[in-house]
Protein backbone atom coordinates (compact mmCIF):
# COMPACT_ATOMS: atom_id res chain seq x y z
CA UNK A 1 0.00 0.00 0.00
CA UNK A 2 1.49 3.29 -1.09
CA UNK A 3 0.89 5.60 1.76
CA UNK A 4 3.52 8.14 2.65
CA UNK A 5 2.11 10.25 5.40
CA UNK A 6 -1.05 8.69 6.67
CA UNK A 7 -1.39 11.27 9.45
CA UNK A 8 -2.99 13.91 7.30
CA UNK A 9 -5.51 11.52 5.84
CA UNK A 10 -9.09 11.33 6.95
CA UNK A 11 -10.42 7.83 7.62
CA UNK A 12 -13.58 8.45 5.68
CA UNK A 13 -14.79 10.67 2.91
CA UNK A 14 -18.16 11.29 1.39
CA UNK A 15 -18.28 10.79 -2.36
CA UNK A 16 -20.49 13.24 -4.24
CA UNK A 17 -20.62 11.14 -7.39
CA UNK A 18 -22.46 13.78 -9.49
CA UNK A 19 -25.29 12.89 -11.83
CA UNK A 20 -23.15 12.70 -14.96
CA UNK A 21 -20.68 10.28 -13.41
CA UNK A 22 -23.52 8.28 -11.93
CA UNK A 23 -25.44 7.87 -15.17
CA UNK A 24 -22.98 8.41 -18.02
CA UNK A 25 -19.53 7.64 -16.63
CA UNK A 26 -20.00 5.10 -13.81
CA UNK A 27 -16.43 3.93 -14.45
CA UNK A 28 -15.18 7.30 -13.25
CA UNK A 29 -16.96 6.67 -9.97
CA UNK A 30 -15.37 3.23 -9.72
CA UNK A 31 -11.93 4.64 -10.45
CA UNK A 32 -12.41 7.30 -7.80
CA UNK A 33 -13.47 4.76 -5.21
CA UNK A 34 -10.50 2.60 -6.17
CA UNK A 35 -8.08 5.51 -5.64
CA UNK A 36 -9.56 6.48 -2.31
CA UNK A 37 -9.61 2.94 -1.02
CA UNK A 38 -6.05 2.50 -2.20
CA UNK A 39 -5.22 5.35 0.16
CA UNK A 40 -6.94 3.47 2.95
CA UNK A 41 -9.86 5.81 3.05
CA UNK A 42 -13.35 4.52 3.51
CA UNK A 43 -15.81 5.87 0.94
CA UNK A 44 -19.34 6.78 1.85
CA UNK A 45 -21.82 7.22 -0.98
CA UNK A 46 -25.28 8.32 0.12
CA UNK A 47 -27.57 6.88 -2.51
CA UNK A 48 -30.15 9.61 -2.15
CA UNK A 49 -27.86 12.10 -3.85
CA UNK A 50 -28.93 13.06 -7.36
CA UNK A 51 -27.68 16.34 -8.79
CA UNK A 52 -25.97 19.45 -7.44
CA UNK A 53 -28.50 21.73 -9.11
CA UNK A 54 -26.00 23.39 -11.42
CA UNK A 55 -28.15 22.88 -14.55
CA UNK A 56 -30.92 24.85 -12.91
CA UNK A 57 -28.69 27.48 -11.41
CA UNK A 58 -26.89 28.11 -14.70
CA UNK A 59 -30.12 28.47 -16.60
CA UNK A 60 -31.70 31.01 -14.33
CA UNK A 61 -33.75 28.67 -12.17
CA UNK A 62 -32.16 29.45 -8.83
CA UNK A 63 -35.33 28.49 -6.98
CA UNK A 64 -35.29 25.01 -8.46
CA UNK A 65 -31.61 24.59 -7.67
CA UNK A 66 -32.30 25.63 -4.09
CA UNK A 67 -35.16 23.15 -3.72
CA UNK A 68 -33.11 20.32 -5.18
CA UNK A 69 -30.21 20.96 -2.85
CA UNK A 70 -32.46 21.54 0.14
CA UNK A 71 -33.74 17.96 -0.13
CA UNK A 72 -30.17 16.67 -0.13
CA UNK A 73 -28.66 18.77 2.67
CA UNK A 74 -29.26 16.07 5.28
CA UNK A 75 -27.34 13.58 3.15
CA UNK A 76 -24.30 15.83 3.12
CA UNK A 77 -24.20 16.60 6.81
CA UNK A 78 -21.33 15.45 8.94
CA UNK A 79 -17.72 16.41 9.32
CA UNK A 80 -15.85 14.40 6.71
CA UNK A 81 -14.52 15.81 3.43
CA UNK A 82 -16.90 15.73 0.49
CA UNK A 83 -15.10 14.66 -2.67
CA UNK A 84 -16.37 15.89 -6.03
CA UNK A 85 -14.93 14.31 -9.17
CA UNK A 86 -15.96 17.37 -11.22
CA UNK A 87 -14.88 20.98 -10.90
CA UNK A 88 -18.27 22.30 -11.91
CA UNK A 89 -20.26 20.34 -9.33
CA UNK A 90 -17.57 21.11 -6.78
CA UNK A 91 -17.92 24.81 -7.55
CA UNK A 92 -21.69 24.59 -7.25
CA UNK A 93 -21.47 23.03 -3.79
CA UNK A 94 -18.55 25.08 -2.57
CA UNK A 95 -19.31 28.53 -3.96
CA UNK A 96 -22.98 28.66 -4.89
CA UNK A 97 -24.71 26.46 -2.31
CA UNK A 98 -23.98 28.81 0.62
CA UNK A 99 -25.55 31.71 -1.26
CA UNK A 100 -28.83 29.95 -1.95
CA UNK A 101 -30.51 30.38 1.42
CA UNK A 102 -30.34 34.07 2.28
CA UNK A 103 -33.63 33.98 4.19
CA UNK A 104 -33.24 30.67 5.99
CA UNK A 105 -30.59 30.87 8.73
CA UNK A 106 -30.85 27.16 9.50
CA UNK A 107 -30.25 26.03 5.91
CA UNK A 108 -27.68 28.76 5.37
CA UNK A 109 -25.60 27.55 8.26
CA UNK A 110 -25.85 23.96 7.10
CA UNK A 111 -24.96 24.95 3.56
CA UNK A 112 -21.93 26.91 4.70
CA UNK A 113 -20.75 23.99 6.78
CA UNK A 114 -21.16 21.61 3.86
CA UNK A 115 -19.49 23.99 1.41
CA UNK A 116 -16.49 24.23 3.69
CA UNK A 117 -15.95 20.48 3.40
CA UNK A 118 -16.21 20.19 -0.38
CA UNK A 119 -13.01 19.49 -2.26
CA UNK A 120 -12.35 18.44 -5.83
CA UNK A 121 -10.75 15.02 -6.29
CA UNK A 122 -7.31 16.07 -7.56
CA UNK A 123 -7.10 18.76 -4.89
CA UNK A 124 -7.87 16.14 -2.29
CA UNK A 125 -5.31 13.70 -3.61
CA UNK A 126 -2.65 16.41 -3.47
CA UNK A 127 -3.77 17.44 -0.05
CA UNK A 128 -3.29 13.94 1.34
CA UNK A 129 -0.01 13.85 -0.54
CA UNK A 130 -0.85 10.75 -2.49
CA UNK A 131 2.09 10.22 -4.80
CA UNK A 132 2.20 6.52 -5.56
CA UNK A 133 -0.67 5.39 -7.66
CA UNK A 134 0.82 2.05 -8.64
CA UNK A 135 0.22 2.56 -12.34
CA UNK A 136 1.70 4.30 -15.33
CA UNK A 137 0.10 5.91 -18.30
CA UNK A 138 2.13 5.10 -21.39
CA UNK A 139 2.31 7.49 -24.38
CA UNK A 140 1.62 11.19 -24.36
CA UNK A 141 -0.81 12.69 -21.87
CA UNK A 142 -2.36 16.14 -22.13
CA UNK A 143 -4.68 17.81 -19.63
CA UNK A 144 -7.68 19.97 -20.51
CA UNK A 145 -8.49 22.56 -17.85
CA UNK A 146 -12.19 22.46 -17.17
CA UNK A 147 -13.43 26.01 -16.76
CA UNK A 148 -15.05 25.57 -13.38
CA UNK A 149 -12.10 23.84 -11.78
CA UNK A 150 -9.71 26.40 -13.29
CA UNK A 151 -11.64 29.60 -12.77
CA UNK A 152 -14.40 28.60 -10.40
CA UNK A 153 -12.19 26.85 -7.86
CA UNK A 154 -9.00 28.58 -9.03
CA UNK A 155 -7.14 25.32 -9.51
CA UNK A 156 -4.73 24.51 -12.30
CA UNK A 157 -1.93 22.83 -10.35
CA UNK A 158 -3.28 19.72 -8.63
CA UNK A 159 -4.51 17.87 -11.74
CA UNK A 160 -1.10 18.35 -13.32
CA UNK A 161 0.75 17.38 -10.17
CA UNK A 162 -1.28 14.18 -9.90
CA UNK A 163 -0.83 13.32 -13.55
CA UNK A 164 2.90 13.84 -13.32
CA UNK A 165 3.02 10.89 -10.90
CA UNK A 166 1.60 8.48 -13.49
CA UNK A 167 2.13 9.94 -16.95
CA UNK A 168 5.12 8.67 -18.84
CA UNK A 169 5.13 11.85 -20.89
CA UNK A 170 2.86 14.74 -19.98
CA UNK A 171 2.79 17.73 -22.27
CA UNK A 172 0.83 20.94 -22.11
CA UNK A 173 -2.20 20.99 -24.36
CA UNK A 174 -2.12 24.18 -26.48
CA UNK A 175 -4.82 26.54 -25.17
CA UNK A 176 -5.57 24.04 -22.43
CA UNK A 177 -7.55 26.73 -20.59
CA UNK A 178 -9.92 27.36 -23.47
CA UNK A 179 -13.48 26.13 -22.99
CA UNK A 180 -14.38 22.93 -24.88
CA UNK A 181 -17.79 24.36 -25.76
CA UNK A 182 -19.91 22.36 -23.35
CA UNK A 183 -21.33 25.00 -21.02
CA UNK A 184 -24.36 22.91 -20.01
CA UNK A 185 -27.41 24.00 -21.96
CA UNK A 186 -25.16 26.26 -24.03
CA UNK A 187 -24.09 23.27 -26.11
CA UNK A 188 -27.62 22.54 -27.24
CA UNK A 189 -28.89 26.11 -27.38
CA UNK A 190 -26.00 27.18 -29.60
CA UNK A 191 -24.92 23.88 -31.16
CA UNK A 192 -22.93 25.25 -34.08
CA UNK A 193 -20.87 27.62 -31.92
CA UNK A 194 -20.39 24.89 -29.34
CA UNK A 195 -19.27 22.38 -31.95
CA UNK A 196 -16.83 24.88 -33.46
CA UNK A 197 -15.28 25.36 -30.02
CA UNK A 198 -15.18 21.60 -29.52
CA UNK A 199 -13.48 21.17 -32.86
CA UNK A 200 -10.75 23.61 -31.79
CA UNK A 201 -10.24 21.66 -28.60
CA UNK A 202 -9.93 18.32 -30.36
CA UNK A 203 -7.66 19.79 -33.02
CA UNK A 204 -5.24 21.08 -30.41
CA UNK A 205 -5.03 17.61 -28.86
CA UNK A 206 -4.48 16.10 -32.29
CA UNK A 207 -1.86 18.68 -33.18
CA UNK A 208 0.36 17.54 -30.34
CA UNK A 209 -0.46 13.94 -31.17
CA UNK A 210 -1.70 13.13 -27.71
CA UNK A 211 -2.49 9.56 -26.73
CA UNK A 212 -4.57 10.53 -23.73
CA UNK A 213 -6.70 13.61 -23.32
CA UNK A 214 -7.44 13.93 -19.62
CA UNK A 215 -10.27 16.02 -18.20
CA UNK A 216 -11.43 16.53 -14.65
CA UNK A 217 -15.07 17.25 -15.29
CA UNK A 218 -17.74 14.90 -16.56
CA UNK A 219 -19.46 17.78 -18.36
CA UNK A 220 -16.45 18.40 -20.59
CA UNK A 221 -16.12 14.65 -21.04
CA UNK A 222 -19.67 14.24 -22.28
CA UNK A 223 -19.04 16.89 -24.90
CA UNK A 224 -15.52 15.89 -25.89
CA UNK A 225 -16.41 12.19 -26.10
CA UNK A 226 -19.23 13.00 -28.53
CA UNK A 227 -16.90 15.06 -30.68
CA UNK A 228 -14.09 12.50 -30.66
CA UNK A 229 -16.30 9.67 -31.80
CA UNK A 230 -17.99 11.83 -34.44
CA UNK A 231 -14.56 12.67 -35.86
CA UNK A 232 -13.42 9.08 -35.40
CA UNK A 233 -10.39 10.56 -33.67
CA UNK A 234 -7.75 8.25 -32.28
CA UNK A 235 -7.36 10.44 -29.19
CA UNK A 236 -8.46 8.58 -26.06
CA UNK A 237 -10.38 10.46 -23.44
CA UNK A 238 -9.94 9.79 -19.73
CA UNK A 239 -11.22 11.27 -16.54
CA UNK A 240 -8.38 12.14 -14.21
CA UNK A 241 -9.54 9.44 -11.79
CA UNK A 242 -9.25 6.84 -14.55
CA UNK A 243 -5.86 8.18 -15.60
CA UNK A 244 -4.60 7.91 -12.03
CA UNK A 245 -6.14 4.52 -11.28
CA UNK A 246 -4.53 3.27 -14.45
CA UNK A 247 -5.06 0.41 -16.90
CA UNK A 248 -6.40 -2.92 -15.62
CA UNK A 249 -7.80 -1.33 -12.50
CA UNK A 250 -11.44 -0.68 -11.63
CA UNK A 251 -12.94 2.07 -13.75
CA UNK A 252 -10.66 1.64 -16.77
CA UNK A 253 -12.80 2.25 -19.88
CA UNK A 254 -13.79 -0.77 -21.87
CA UNK A 255 -11.87 -1.13 -25.13
CA UNK A 256 -8.95 1.15 -24.20
Amino acid sequence: MAIESPDNRPKRVLFFATCLVDQFFPEVGEATVHLLEKADIEVIFPEGLTCCGLPHFNNGFRGEARKTLETQLHLLEGDIPIIAPSGSCGWMLKCVLPTLFPDDPWAREKAAQIAGRVIELSQFLCQIEMREFGSTLPGKTVYHDSCHLLRGLGENQTPRQCLDHVAENREELPNSDRCCGFGGSFCVKFPEVSCAMLEDKIKSAEEVDATWLVAADAGCMLNIAGGLSRRKSKIKLLHIAQALAGPHNPGWPEGY
Binding site: N8, P10, L14, G78, I80, P81, T99, A112, I119, L153
Partner: peptide
Protein backbone atom coordinates in the same frame (compact mmCIF):
# COMPACT_ATOMS: atom_id res chain seq x y z
CA UNK B 1 -23.27 8.12 6.70
CA UNK B 2 -19.84 9.18 7.76
CA UNK B 3 -20.65 11.21 10.83
CA UNK B 4 -17.66 10.70 12.99
CA UNK B 5 -15.88 12.76 15.58
CA UNK B 6 -12.63 10.85 15.45
CA UNK B 7 -11.45 11.62 11.97
CA UNK B 8 -12.26 15.28 11.61
CA UNK B 9 -9.78 16.51 9.03
CA UNK B 10 -9.99 20.19 9.82
CA UNK B 11 -6.62 20.78 8.26
CA UNK B 12 -7.85 19.57 4.92
CA UNK B 13 -10.99 21.60 4.98
CA UNK B 14 -9.26 24.79 5.94
CA UNK B 15 -6.61 24.42 3.32
CA UNK B 16 -9.07 24.27 0.43
CA UNK B 17 -9.03 27.69 -1.07
CA UNK B 18 -11.45 30.51 -1.12
CA UNK B 19 -14.50 29.74 0.79
CA UNK B 20 -17.95 31.04 0.58
CA UNK B 21 -18.24 33.57 -2.11
Amino acid sequence: NGVSQADSPDAIIEKTHHALE
